[in-house]
Design a protein around this nucleic acid. Structure first.
Lengths: 161, 161
DNA sequence: ATAACCCTTGGACCATGGTCCAAGGTCAAG
DNA sequence: CTTGACCTTGGACCATGGTCCAAGGGTTAT
């Protein structure tokens, strides 16, 4: 198995080196072996893992979700239904976002169509719309994370759960 | 004109007091008058402004964009076409996002449909998809503001621009 | 007059996903 | 032996839109 240093993995995965170290810090990549002088050593499986992460990212999975997926993948007591659950949650999110953005698109399109370009701003239907507090009710952008118990965590490194 | 303190404006606009002070800090709200003891004093026009901001937010305008819109609204040399330009840019963004998320939705739907819930994770088409580096090409989530590509040389020197 | 609220400030902190830096160690070529 | 490319670390910083806190002063009701 060919081993290589972080620069090469960075090239193969098309990300900056810092991103790889960041993924390691957050637990997405496990601490790699090191040369006697402390250089990180990677192999093809790490390239695969990086590609997995990037693919998941491209489907809007967060790094925390991606971490879960990787853990499920590595687990032998996990079932496909566990993966499916994560996927369905993401699918749901995507549907809601498409719906919300589609609505925004419609509104903006109508307002733009109705806007007489050469008029003063007073006659602009867009400003009217915003001023009249007609406000788009549709789920908010993000669903909120329930607030966490903030015990005195001095010097705790952020780790994905 | 009835004047009131920050708590009442917060109630009227349905936001926390801190958000109002935050908007003031960032220039979305101009510094209000103060009582002799330093309390901020607001009136109906501030309620309207807050509603404008929330309406713009609901259409995915950022606070910076909203600030521009408010400035254009207040300006007397601004034309409706200036507002239109901001709106069209946002419309474009919405279209791209709808397209991207629609694509994601399709992929996730297909993968979910193909997933045999009772199988081991080895047989999961979702993990296959992610492992095979099939990665969704469609604009990234955010368009980035001139990113410095510091892809270190690694055998190939790059000229500074 | 004293509790119960309201208000003020500056600054720290939250999530998310990185990005950059300085100070220093390592390694191969010339 | 020096140069240059590469690597290490901890920590600061970026954008975005807030949220929370402590320490202190102001106002209102009893």
């Amino acid at each position: 198995m060919t081993r290589f240093k972080i620069g090469e993995l960075a090239q193969a995965a098309n990300v900056p080196r810092d991103t790889i170290r960041y993924y390691e810090r957050t637990g997405l990549l496990s601490p790699p072996e090191r040369t006697s002088s402390g250089y990180r050593l990677y192999d093809q499986s790490d390239v695969d893992r990086m590609r997995f992460i990037r693919a998941a990212q491209s489907l809007d999975f967060t790094l925390a979700e991606t971490k879960s997926l990787l853990e499920l993948k590595a687990s032998d007591h996990a079932k496909a239904s566990d993966i499916l659950a994560v996927t369905l949650a993401k699918l749901d999110q995507a549907k809601l976002k498409v719906e919300r953005l589609g609505h925004i698109r419609e509104i903006l399109q109508k307002l733009a169509d109705a806007c007489p370009q050469d008029a003063a701003t007073d006659a602009c239907p867009i400003l009217d719309f915003l001023s009249n507090g007609d406000f788009v009710e549709l789920g908010s952008k993000e669903q909120k994370t329930s607030k966490m118990e903030r015990t005195t965590t001095l010097t705790t490194r952020r780790e994905l759960t």
